[in-house]
Deep mutational scan, measured.
Amino acid sequence: MSRVPSPPPPAEMSSGPVAESWCYTQIKVVKFSYMWTINNFSFCREEMGEVIKSSTFSSGANDKLKWCLRVNPKGLDEESKDYLSLYLLLVSCPKSEVRAKFKFSILNAKGEETKAMESQRAYRFVQGKDWGFKKFIRRDFLLDEANGLLPDDKLTLFCEVSVVQDSVNISGQNTMNMVKVPECRLADELGGLWENSRFTDCCLCVAGQEFQAHKAILAARSPVFSAMFEHEMEESKKNRVEINDVEPEVFKEMMCFIYTGKAPNLDKMADDLLAAADKYALERLKVMCEDALCSNLSVENAAEILILADLHSADQLKTQAVDFINYHASDVLETSGWKSMVVSHPHLVAEAYRSLASAQCPFLGPPRKRLKQS
C-alpha cells in the first residue's frame, strides 16, 4: 500500500486566492494483479454453464480479502454459449462490502496482453458476489490457432484489481511565511564533478583513453575500487588504474551511474553493462540491467540471455529466462542460440529441462510459493 502523499503547497495549487485553511483528501486504492494459466484448455468440458475456478489470491499475505477468477468455457447461458465468460469473485471478506475495479486480458504466445476488457467503474462486491463479462471473447476466435491465444493449448488470463480503501483527510492552515525547501541536487552536482573533471585525484585508463576521477567517490560506490585504493596496490601508489576489459562507451555509462545513480543509455548496452556491474560489484546497476534484459526477452535471444545471466550470477534474470524458455519451449528449441547452448553450456540445458519437467508435473513435489530491489 502506498504512503499517503503530503498535500501540495497551496501557493502551487492555483494562481488564484489562497485560503486560510485547507483539506486534502486521499482515497486510498490498493492495486494488484494475478495470472492464471489453464493447461490443455481444449479438453475443458463443453457443457453450457460449466465452471472452472482459479485458486484464491489477494494483494498480499496480510490481506484478508480473498478473490478468485471464474471461467465458463462455453458461456454462462444460452445467450453467451458462443463466448467464454469471465468473472472476478470475492471469496471471503471481513467487511460487509468492498468496491473494486478490474481489468481482464489474455496473454498471447509472446506474453503480450490482448483482448483487454475492464470495468468502467468500481463495482460493489459482497462475499460470494462476482462481476465480469458474460461475453468476454468469442470461442471461435479464441480457438483459432492463427490468433495465437492458446500457445501449446494453454489459456493464460491476466487480471488487474484495484480495491478502494478508506479515504484519509489531511488538513492544515496557511501561513504568510511559507518556506520552500529546494530539491536535493546531489546527483546532478556529483555528475558535474565527473563531467568537468574537477578536483580529480586519479586516472582511469580504458582502451587508450584516459578519464579523470575521484578516488573517494569510486571507493564509496564500488567495493572493488575501494579494495584497489585501500591496500598497497599499484593503483593506490600511482593513482592510476588500467581497465582492459570494458569498452570506453560502456565504461562511461558505468561511471555515470557511479556518480549519479542513473544510467540513461542502459537499454542500448544492458548486456555489456551487466558484465561491468558484476565485475565492479555495483549491485543496483546489475539489477537494473537484469530488468532491462528481462523486458527484451524473446524467442530468438532467450538462450543467449540465459548464458549471460549464468555467467554473471544474475539470479533474477536467470529465473526469468528459464521461465520464458519453459513457456515458449517449442519455439526456443528451434533457435540457433539454443542449439549452440546445447554444445557450449549443457548444464544450462539440463537446468531448463528440470524446470520444465517440474512445471508440467506438479505432483512430483509440493507447490512452490512464489514470493528486491534495493
Score class of each variant (00 low, 15 high):
L149M: 14
A19V: 06
K135F: 12
A314M: 13
L107S: 10
K238H: 10
P346E: 11
H312S: 07
K154H: 09
E242D: 01
E79Y: 14
Y34D: 08
E112R: 14
S226E: 14
A11Q: 08
N39H: 06
A146G: 04
R370T: 04
I170T: 01
A220W: 06
E334K: 08
I307M: 08
S21A: 10
L84A: 09
A213W: 07
E47R: 12
T260M: 08
K369H: 03
H345L: 03
Q173D: 01
E290N: 06
Y83L: 14
E232G: 11
T175G: 08
C205P: 15
F104K: 00
N147M: 12
V4F: 02
V30F: 06
F158C: 06
R368M: 15
A275T: 07
V299I: 12
A309M: 00
E118Y: 01
S197P: 01
G172V: 04
M117E: 05
S80C: 02
L308F: 11
Q360K: 07
A329I: 02
S80G: 07
P346Y: 11
F199D: 15
P5G: 06
V91H: 07
F102L: 12
S171L: 03
A277P: 01
H328L: 03
G60Q: 09
L306K: 00
G337Y: 05
P151L: 03
E12W: 06
E189G: 08
D77T: 07
L308H: 10
Q26N: 09
Q127N: 11
L150R: 08
L90N: 04
L90Y: 02
V287Y: 07
T37D: 10
M233I: 13
Y280H: 02
G365Q: 09
E97H: 13
V179G: 06
L65T: 11
L76D: 13
K180D: 08
Y34E: 08
C256R: 01
D152G: 07
A187L: 04
W22A: 05
E189F: 07
Q26I: 04
S6Y: 07
Y259E: 01
K134R: 06
F257R: 00
F229Y: 13
C202Q: 14
P94L: 01
R370E: 04
R121P: 01
L218V: 11
S33Q: 04
S15N: 05
V98A: 15
E242K: 02
T335C: 06
Q316E: 11
L297M: 10
E235A: 08
E290C: 07
S85E: 14
M233Y: 11
A61W: 07
I217N: 04
L65Q: 12
P10Y: 10
S80W: 11
A11E: 02
I137R: 04
S33N: 11
S374G: 07
E195C: 05
I243N: 02
